[in-house]
């Protein structure tokens, strides 16, 4: 049962990931990416990270992807068909990523099988995560808030309209 769900979710996310990369229109890419993120949240649920699945859906599918959609609609990208790279670049990209995938899969296959640790299904719940987050990981948590603040300031500065240059 779990194996079936796992294979189904994997197939769906690999398919939607491929469609993100292959579809011509940017809006379609964004929608496929949202779907891919939902399937990845399903993977998190199966890996006993319930809180993380919720955070993933809220932050990625809810915030980042909406930002992408807004920008695509603001910049009006669907009017002009996107120029494609030359076939040579595509072929070499396929060869490069395929070979690296092959090496990685081969090394994983050759590794010895690990027995799964004792299942603890409730460790990913909010209570445990909150206890450790505000104890052991307090400093990184605060640093992340600083990082987000500086990113916000940087984004506002960068996105602001430039003042018109003075004519002499």
């Amino acid at each position: 049962m779990t194996l079936t769900v796992f294979y189904l979710l994997s197939a769906l996310s690999v398919f939607s990931g491929l469609m993100v990369v292959l579809s011509r229109k940017a809006v379609h890419s964004v929608l496929y990416l949202v779907f891919c993120f939902f399937t990845i949240a399903g993977h998190y649920l199966m890996l006993n990270a319930q809180f993380l699945a919720a955070v993933h859906v809220i932050v990625y599918a809810g915030a980042i992807m909406v930002l992408f959609l807004f920008v695509i609609m603001m910049l009006n990208l669907n009017l002009a068909a996107e120029a494609q790279k030359t076939p040579w670049i595509k072929i070499s990209a396929v060869i490069l990523s395929g070979l690296m995938l092959l090496v990685l899969v081969a090394s994983v296959k050759g590794a010895e099988e690990l027995s799964a640790a004792q299942p603890q299904n409730d460790i990913g719940l909010v209570k445990n995560i909150g206890n450790i987050l505000f104890d052991k990981y307090l400093l990184p948590f605060e640093l992340i808030s600083l990082l987000l603040l500086s990113a916000m300031v940087g984004a506002v500065l960068m996105g602001r309209k430039e003042p018109q240059p003075q004519n002499e």
């Binding site: 940017a26 890996l47 996107e82 990209a93």
Partner: peptide, 28 residues
């Protein structure tokens, strides 16, 4: 039957290299 670590690693590697391919080939 339980999911093994290998299957998850192969799946995530596939997703990673889909991303690499997209980064190399798209111009947008």
């Amino acid at each position: 039957m339980n999911i093994t670590l290998h299957e998850i690693l192969i799946f995530s590697a596939a997703l990673f290299f889909i991303g690499v391919y997209g980064f190399l080939t798209r111009r947008n």
